[in-house]
């Protein structure tokens, strides 16, 4: 899979060969490739000078890392307290049904990855769903589905959300 941002060599070159840069390396790999493959994890741990097990522990400990390729679009449903009180969980369940995928998973056609996030800190907008970088405020599963359909039809759709940060 081609990187969206920096390629592997550029990522490795940026950081001194020290264990403290392991998380930086994995974050850059994640954002360029959308996930952390076994090979890239091996390269990151070799560069940082730590055993592969440490990289694997780190990659499975923190929520933002994925070990499988993710979908073209990421749908993150906020489950912070304010969103919970205003029906965030219901949105997750409804999107699971509509996208036919469990939270944390990717649709079979690799279009969407559905994730939950424990508070994006935009509580005034509850319930919030973040699609790629677009924040959808006071949303419902229905409104979202319309937006996702648009994304599905138009790969270059941009700025269709209410605003991005």
């Amino acid at each position: 899979m081609a990187p969206v941002g920096k390629d592997m060599d550029t990522i490795l070159e940026q950081y001194p060969a020290k264990p403290e840069y392991l998380i930086f390396l994995l974050q850059d790999i994640q954002s360029s490739y959308g996930y952390i493959s076994q090979e890239s994890m091996q390269q990151a741990s070799d560069h940082a000078g730590v055993p592969l097990t440490q990289a694997y522990s780190v990659a499975t400990f923190y929520q933002s890392f994925r070990l499988d390729p993710s979908g073209e679009h990421e749908v993150r449903v906020c489950l912070g307290t304010a969103c919970h009180l205003k029906g965030g969980q219901r949105i997750v369940e409804e999107l699971e049904r509509r996208l036919n995928v469990e939270a944390g998973g990717t649709t079979a056609d690799m279009r969407f990855t559905l994730n939950t996030v424990n508070c994006v800190g935009a509580c005034a907008l509850a319930p919030v769903v973040v699609v790629d970088d677009d924040y959808h405020a006071n949303t419902t599963a229905r409104k979202l589905e319309k937006h996702l359909k648009k994304l599905e039809h138009d790969v270059t759709a941009d700025g269709e959300g209410q605003g991005h940060v």
Binding site: K18, P19, E20, Y21, L22, I23, F24, L26, Q27, A48, V50, Q54, S57, V58, F61, Y62, Q63, S64, F65, N118
Partner: peptide
């Protein structure tokens, strides 16, 4: 700046330190 990688427990002081050191935030 160290960007967190998604772990609430890293708000705990010693977990935050282990995370800055490049390890799981235990």
């Amino acid at each position: 700046i160290n960007r967190g990688a998604g772990a609430f427990v890293c708000g705990e002081s010693t977990a935050l330190f282990t995370s800055i050191e490049g390890k799981p935030g235990n």
